[in-house]
Nucleic acid binder design. Structure first.
Length: 427
DNA sequence: TCTGGGGTCCTAGGACCC
DNA sequence: TCTGGGGTCCTAGGACCC
């Protein structure tokens, strides 16, 4: 039994560097929406001690002094690069789980132990040559150990990007586990780290030797699973085909704070359109819409207001108009004047497959058919001419909208838009 | 001045029922 | 006066992930 975890180094930064090789060797960060926080850091930036999630405005001085280059995030580009990388990696195993935009698990059962290391090297080189991305490979008996091995492969130069856990002598394994802080374990976050430390569990080694039953009582079944996985007992299965989403969200912080109900309504309508779009693309219907609006937590001197409303539909639907109406009801109910709003969003809940949808008793068959026809036509136009070409007018017609996000340093969609391909400067 | 977005899973606790 | 216990379902909140 062996599982590989392959993931890209500084994925977003590496994607940008593929098309702008002059960024190689220079300190680069990629920023979140609204150019708010740092979401990817090149090795040079990590070495300066810049933490993930640092607000960009706090880095101005350092950036100027050190010449840090900041780029707005370009998710279209990253998604396309990710697809290419995943396609290549899928050739190394019949069973692949794409776990996130920049990492996947490969099931390597059936391969001899002495082949694993060279397979890892081969995967690494192929991705590097074919899409230009640097990746690290960790191979072990469980997903949790593969994650740790991957960490070792990346952090310790002597492993050269590939670490096969079971090839290591027991003494080396023990030494590594005793060196690694427990916070490195997949599934152990900040809260758990603090609680573990209180009970004297500091390193991965300590956690591995904790009593699973007792730890389950103190934390939850997830902690027990964690410990067992660290001992080499697989508890987390491979998921080849991602199940349909149980919840679909769309939310954004505003580029500029807004106060009027009209602007909030536009924003909520746009998020609703996007979310229901995603819903239809996965062939689902949703039974409820949740809408939230809130002021900025970081503006403590201003009056704060957080509100959420959940609207249950009479029948599960995938008709954008139904959700837009529900959104209007929700907003009218919770909007309060006099606040400066910083963020809004919607969630689609109670999602089920469209196949399970029972005939709507309160709409005629013709009405149902017409609604479906309308949505299908809108989707087709948007696929052909680009997202947002055709959409309900309530989502705002100005472009860019006053409240839309800031993204001052976005790179072109090199790989997915002909018009922007021309601007790519190779070399 | 300026602090992201989209997910999943688990547990506790309340409501309700028998 | 004495005031059970177990099951299910739902939701909110908290933890985690990238």
């Amino acid at each position: 039994m062996a599982i590989a975890l392959v993931d890209a180094n500084n994925f977003y930064v590496s994607c940008e560097r593929v098309f702008r090789p002059n960024l190689e060797g220079r300190p680069v960060v990629v920023l979140s929406n609204n150019d708010g926080c740092v979401v990817a850091r090149s090795a040079e930036v990590k070495a300066m001690g810049v933490a993930m999630g640092t607000p960009w405005f706090q880095l101005q001085k350092l950036a100027k002094r050190e010449g840090i280059i900041a780029l707005s995030s370009n998710y279209t580009l990253y998604a396309d690069m990710s697809n290419r990388m995943m396609g290549i990696l899928s050739s190394f195993s019949p069973i692949q789980e794409v776990y996130s935009i920049d990492e996947c698990f490969l099931d390597l059962r059936g391969f001899a132990q002495d082949q694993l290391s060279s397979m890892g090297q081969a995967a690494r080189e192929k991705v590097r040559q074919w899409v230009g991305l640097p990746v690290g490979v960790g191979i072990a008996a469980t997903k949790t150990l593969a994650k740790l091995a991957n960490h070792v492969a990346k952090k310790m130069p002597e492993y050269a990007g590939v670490c096969v856990w079971d090839d290591l002598p027991a003494g080396d394994q023990q030494r590594l586990l005793q060196q690694l802080p427990v916070s490195e374990v997949w599934g152990v976050g900040r809260q758990w780290t603090a609680r573990l430390q209180e009970t004297g569990i500091q390193t991965v080694w300590d956690l591995r030797h904790a009593d699973p039953a007792l730890m389950r009582k103190r934390f939850s079944i997830l902690m027990e699973r964690c410990i067992r996985e660290l001992r080499g007992e697989p508890c987390i299965a491979m998921v080849e085909i991602p199940p349909p989403r149980q919840e679909i969200q769309s939310s954004r912080s505003f580029g500029h704070p807004i106060t009027s109900v009209d602007e909030l309504g536009e924003a909520i309508s746009l998020y609703t359109v996007r979310a229901v779009d995603t819903l239809r693309r996965q062939g689902s219907v949703a039974g409820a819409l949740r809408v939230f609006i809130h002021t900025s937590l970081f503006q403590a001197h201003l009056p704060q207001y957080h509100a959420t409303r959940t609207i249950a539909l009479n029948h599960p639907s995938q008709d954008t108009r139904v959700f837009l109406q529900a959104g209007r009801v929700a907003l009218a109910d919770m909007y309060r004047p006099g606040f400066v709003y910083a963020k809004a969003g919607v969630h689609l809940l109670e999602i089920t497959s469209v196949d399970t949808l029972q005939a709507n008793l309160f709409l005629s068959a013709e009405d149902n058919a017409r609604a479906l026809q309308l949505m299908t036509t809108m989707d087709q136009v948007n696929v052909r001419f680009g997202r947002g070409t055709l959409q309900p007018g309530v989502a705002g017609l100005q472009d860019p909208r006053g409240w839309a996000m800031k993204c001052g340093n976005k790179s072109p969609a090199y790989t997915t838009r002909w018009a922007e391909l021309a601007r790519a400067k190779l070399g």
